[in-house]
């Protein structure tokens, strides 16, 4: 595998869409955008064969910056649109970018069913622990006790572990990384995109503007530095006791296995249907 140079991103960005982009200064989405584009270029995909689909929220604005077919859909439903696109044209590489609220609150049902069906899609879930675009309300991944504009006295619900959820639901590939671990992120994305079946990459990304400010976590620099402290690579994570795991999270590949995709099993139905019809 020959490495592409970082500057390849400029070949993939949409220059008729004016930069700078809409996100706040320091937002991790920009880092993810670069990482995603590098991974696509690295994989040698044809721009014409890639479709980027997103929902609503800060992450929803990501596809517009990439010079591929891009579809910015409704809140929580990006995976359903992607399902339609993929089934309509199975040869396309369909990548879905969602936020944590998008993917696990309003779109939680679609997420688990997409994983169960094992559609050949890549789902990138940008987890910033909050609803950033609408002002910092709590999301299903907001930690217990954290502050949000709708949890002024501290959040009273436990949170989802997105990666564990999608592993259980049957995704072929699940990995977690952060925008701080950007070289690892490039790798995880490359693997997920190349994977046949439903690939999930959970990307922790700081929202210093809303989540960080309300919880006094400092600027995105401090938040990214905290990722450095909290993130533990999978091989080490397995050796940690539960006390040591407190306040930390694992990064790396959580699941990677082969399962037939929906399209493959559906071809079985197609064959049987055609055989039965031929018999009359």
């Amino acid at each position: 595998m020959t490495a592409v140079h970082r500057s390849v991103v400029y070949d993939w960005l949409r220059h008729d869409k004016k930069f700078p982009h809409v996100w706040c200064p320091g937002c991790g989405l920009g880092i993810l955008l670069g990482s995603l584009v590098r991974s696509l270029a690295q994989g040698g995909y044809d721009k014409n064969q890639v479709v980027l689909v997103s929902g609503i929220g800060c992450s929803g604005r990501l596809p517009v910056y990439v010079d591929v077919g891009s579809v910015h859909t409704t809140h929580g439903r990006a995976l359903t649109f992607a399902t339609g696109i993929k089934l309509a044209k199975p040869e396309l590489k369909v990548i879905v970018v969602m936020g944590d609220g998008d993917a696990t609150a309003i779109g939680g049902n679609h997420l688990i069913h997409a994983a169960r069906r094992n559609l050949d899609l890549t789902a990138i879930i940008v987890n910033n622990l909050t609803y950033g675009m609408t002002g910092g309300q709590y999301s299903p991944t907001t930690p217990l006790g954290a502050k949000a504009t709708t949890a002024p006295y501290g959040h009273s619900e436990p949170s989802f572990d997105i990666s564990a959820l999608t592993v259980t639901a049957g995704a072929s590939f699940v990995a977690r990384s952060t925008v701080y671990h950007v070289t690892q992120l490039d790798q995880m994305l490359s693997q997920a995109i190349a994977k046949k079946g439903f690939g999930v990459v959970e990307v922790l990304s700081p929202c210093h503007t809303n989540y960080g400010r309300q919880n006094r976590l400092g600027s995105q620099v401090e938040m990214m530095k905290s990722y450095k402290k909290q993130a533990v690579r999978m091989d080490r994570w397995d050796k940690l006791g539960s006390a040591e795991r407190e306040g930390r999270f694992a990064i790396g590949v959580l699941a990677d296995h082969e399962r037939p995709t929906f399209w493959e099993t559906y071809q079985g139905s197609v064959d049987r249907a055609q055989a039965i019809r031929k018999e009359g």
């Binding site: 359903t80 649109f81 339609g84 696109i85 089934l87 044209k89 929906f262």
Partner: peptide, 19 residues
Amino acid sequence: IQMEDEIASIGACVGASLA
């Protein structure tokens, strides 16, 4: 495809239509 609900069904249709 029988989707998980009607929201998903029409979403898939729009995606397929665009494709």
